[in-house]
C-alpha cells in the first residue's frame, strides 16, 4: 500500500516536466536509448530504494520479532533454555484464556485506559483552547506544556510514587488536612489505578494539547468571525466551530492514546516498586504489559509471554477495526 503511494508521489513531479523531453530525445537519437532505459529504471526502482530503509528496519526489528513471538507462543519456551522448545499448539492461549490473572490484567488495562485517556484528552482540549487565545509569552506556555512529555517515565514515576506514598506522601497529607482518612494508594484497587492514571495524564496531556493547538490554528478565522457576527458566544464557538473542525485530530489522538493505554508498562511497573511486575499484592494495577513481563522475565515462561503479546496484538487490531468503522461513519455523516 504505502509503496504505491510513495511511488506515485515521488514519480509524478518528474513525469510532469521531464518525461516528454526524454521521449522526444529517444526519437531523435538512438544512441541515448540506454540513457532512457536507465532513466525508466530509475523512475521505477528509485522510489522502492527510498522506502527500503524503513522496510529493512521494519523487517529486522518489527516483522522478525513478531513472527518469532508467534512461533514462540505455540511452544513451551523457557528463559533458562532457549534451545529447547516443545510444541504445544494453542495450549498457551487456552491456558491464558482460563487464567484469572490474564482477564484481571485485561480489565485493569481497560479501566486504567479509560480513566487516563478520557480526562487527558478533555483537559488537553481545554488547555489548547486557552493557549489559542492571544497570550503574553505564548511560547513559554507551550514549552511548559511539553515539559512533562520530555520527562522520563522513571523520574516521573518516582516522584509520583513519593507523592502517593501511604505514610507521609503529599497527597495523603492534603487529604488529611481536609479531614479525610489517609488512603493506601498502592494497595487499594481504585486508588492504585487512579494513581497510575494520574502519571499518564500528567505526562501526555501537554503533548495532546499541542496537537490540538496546531489543529486549532488551522481552523479558518472567518468561521469564527461569521459565528460571532451571528451572535455566538465563545463557548458556542468552541462547541460548534472548533470541535467539528478538530474531529479528525481528535480521532487521531484517541487512536494514539488507546494504543498507548493498551501497551501501558513503565508507569505501573515503577509505581509498584519492589516486585512491580506483579502490579500490587492483588494484581490490582497489573496491566497486560506488566503481565507479559512478569510471565516472561520474572517467571521465565517466554512461550506464555509471547502468547500474551499476540493477544495484545489481536486486541489492538480489533480496536483499529472499530476505529475504522467509526471514522467511516463520521465521514458519511459529514
Amino acid at each position: 500500500m504505502s509503496e504505491t503511494t510513495e511511488y506515485a508521489e515521488t514519480a509524478s513531479p518528474d513525469k510532469g516536466d521531464a518525461a516528454p523531453a526524454a521521449s522526444g530525445r529517444r526519437k531523435s537519437s538512438p544512441t541515448s536509448s540506454w540513457r532512457s532505459r536507465l532513466y525508466r529504471w530509475d523512475i521505477k526502482a528509485s522510489p522502492y530504494v527510498f522506502v527500503a530503509p524503513f522496510f529493512l528496519f521494519f523487517g529486522a526489528f518489527g516483522l522478525f520479532p513478531l513472527l518469532y513471538t508467534g512461533w514462540a507462543s505455540l511452544h513451551r519456551l523457557e528463559l533458562t533454555n532457549l534451545d529447547d522448545s516443545t510444541w504445544l499448539g494453542l495450549e498457551n492461549y487456552t491456558n491464558l484464556l482460563q487464567s484469572d490473572y490474564f482477564w484481571n490484567a485485561l480489565g485493569n488495562t481497560f479501566t486504567i485506559g479509560v480513566i487516563s485517556t478520557v480526562p487527558q484528552l478533555a483537559i488537553a482540549l481545554g488547555i489548547a483552547h486557552l493557549l489559542n487565545y492571544k497570550l503574553r509569552g505564548s511560547t513559554l506556555w507551550r514549552v511548559a506544556m511539553l515539559a512533562p512529555y520530555a520527562t522520563s517515565v522513571a523520574s516521573a514515576s518516582l516522584v509520583f510514587t513519593l507523592l502517593f506514598a501511604w505514610d507521609g506522601g503529599m497527597v495523603n497529607w492534603i487529604i488529611g488536612s481536609v479531614g479525610f482518612d489517609p488512603v493506601n494508594w498502592r494497595e487499594s484497587s481504585w486508588g492504585s489505578q487512579f494513581a497510575v492514571s494520574s502519571i499518564v495524564i500528567w505526562r501526555w496531556t501537554g503533548y495532546n494539547a499541542l496537537i490540538y493547538l496546531a489543529a486549532m490554528q488551522a481552523v479558518p478565522h472567518d468561521l469564527y468571525e461569521s459565528a460571532s457576527l451571528d451572535g455566538a458566544s465563545r463557548w458556542q464557538q468552541f462547541r460548534h466551530v472548533t470541535i467539528p473542525m478538530l474531529r479528525p485530530t481528535i480521532l487521531f489522538t484517541v487512536v494514539v492514546s488507546t494504543i498507548g493505554a493498551t501497551q501501558l508498562f513503565g508507569e505501573p511497573l515503577l509505581f509498584g516498586g519492589t516486585a512491580g511486575s506483579k502490579g500490587g499484592a492483588d494484581h490490582q494495577f497489573q496491566t497486560l504489559g506488566l503481565y507479559l513481563y512478569d510471565q516472561g522475565w520474572i517467571n521465565g515462561h517466554l512461550g506464555r509471554a509471547s502468547a500474551v503479546a499476540w493477544l495484545m496484538l489481536v486486541i489492538l487490531l480489533l480496536i483499529a477495526a472499530v476505529n475504522l468503522l467509526i471514522a467511516r461513519r463520521l465521514r458519511k455523516a459529514q
Binding site: 506514598a165 505514610d167 507521609g168 506522601g169 519492589t274
Partner: peptide, 11 residues
C-alpha cells in the same frame, strides 16, 4: 507497612 527496597522504605 513499608515495602523493602522501595523509596519509601529508604525514607
Amino acid at each position: 507497612k513499608l515495602k523493602q527496597f522501595d523509596p519509601t522504605w529508604d525514607q
